[in-house]
């Protein structure tokens, strides 16, 4: 079992290390200056040296992402519930949700920055992109309830509230979690885009601002270090929601079933 785990993990790790090694070698062999392309080792050293600033910024970006996600979950689920109860609400409000979804966030961010404080604008941008997947997936899940089970609840004179709590919400959970996983990644993108558009400095500066700032100063290694941290943040968010999904669904839903073997 452990042997097989190792065999599964070893190739991607080796390939990743080889790619870094090649990068390092190319930089060293051609004596590329660090302000053009820093080597991985230099990026690593920068990451350690600038950890104080960068880790603070990472927490800011993570915080924004999660605050936006919480708002998106609250709003998306609430609206999906209203959709499920009244068709006219769905017909009236769905177009707005679609417009928000299809308009690129890069185009909305400057406008939001006009009306809102930078910190709030960043939060709203992340919220706008995270909201739609939650809303549409939850609405789909609520509508996809097994109609025989609905009949069964009716046979036993279940109240609307019972039907919601014991049937519709659990049935929608896998859809909701799928939406949440997408929304997690999108919220980070929304936050980064808004941070870059805002270019705000000072205490509330996130990782994207560090990139902009380092770019102004031609501190290329630091740009790469911040970029690496953004990737790590994205991976952390993805892993977190995948784990959450597995935790909640593994006992009963096919999507979480172990594959192969």
């Amino acid at each position: 079992m452990i042997k097989r785990r190792l065999a599964d993990w070893l190739p991607p790790i080796l390939v990743f290390c080889a790619a870094l090694g090649l990068w390092e070698f190319v930089v060293w062999r051609n004596a590329i200056p660090p302000y053009v392309l820093p080597s991985p080792s230099l990026i690593g050293r920068t990451l350690v040296a600038d950890w104080g600033t960068l880790s603070g910024s990472m927490m800011v970006t993570l915080g924004t992402t999660f605050e936006a996600l919480i708002a998106a979950v609250a709003g998306g689920v609430a609206l999906a519930l209203l959709f499920a109860q009244w068709r006219w609400v769905e017909r009236s409000f769905f177009p707005f949700a679609v417009i928000l979804q299809v308009t690129p966030i890069v185009a909305i961010a400057p406008l939001l920055l006009v009306y809102l404080e930078p910190g709030t604008a960043v939060l709203v941008c992340a919220f706008v992109v995270a909201f739609f997947p939650i809303l549409s997936n939850t609405a789909l899940g609520l509508a996809a309830t097994d109609h025989n089970l609905v009949d069964l609840f009716e046979l036993y004179h279940a109240s609307r509230f019972q039907q919601l709590m014991l049937l519709r919400l659990p049935a929608a959970l896998p859809y909701f979690l799928g939406g949440l996983r997408i929304a997690g990644g999108l919220a980070l993108i929304g936050a980064i885009v808004a941070e870059i558009a805002a270019g705000s400095a000072g205490q509330g500066a996130g990782l994207a601002y560090r990139i902009v700032e380092a770019g102004f100063r031609l501190n290329i290694p630091r740009m790469f270090a911040a970029l690496a941290l953004i990737s790590v943040t994205g991976i952390l968010i993805f892993v977190f929601f995948s784990a959450l999904s597995w935790l909640l669904l593994s006992r009963w839903h096919d999507s979480a079933r172990e594959r192969g073997g």
């Binding site: 089970l149 036993y156 049935a171």
Partner: peptide
């Protein structure tokens, strides 16, 4: 079809009609 709620175990599925009451 069996029409069980897949998210609950056998015991909770059988409990359902009583629970609704």
């Amino acid at each position: 079809e069996p029409t069980l709620t897949p998210w609950s175990n056998v015991w909770r599925n059988v409990w359902l009609p009583l629970r609704l009451r």
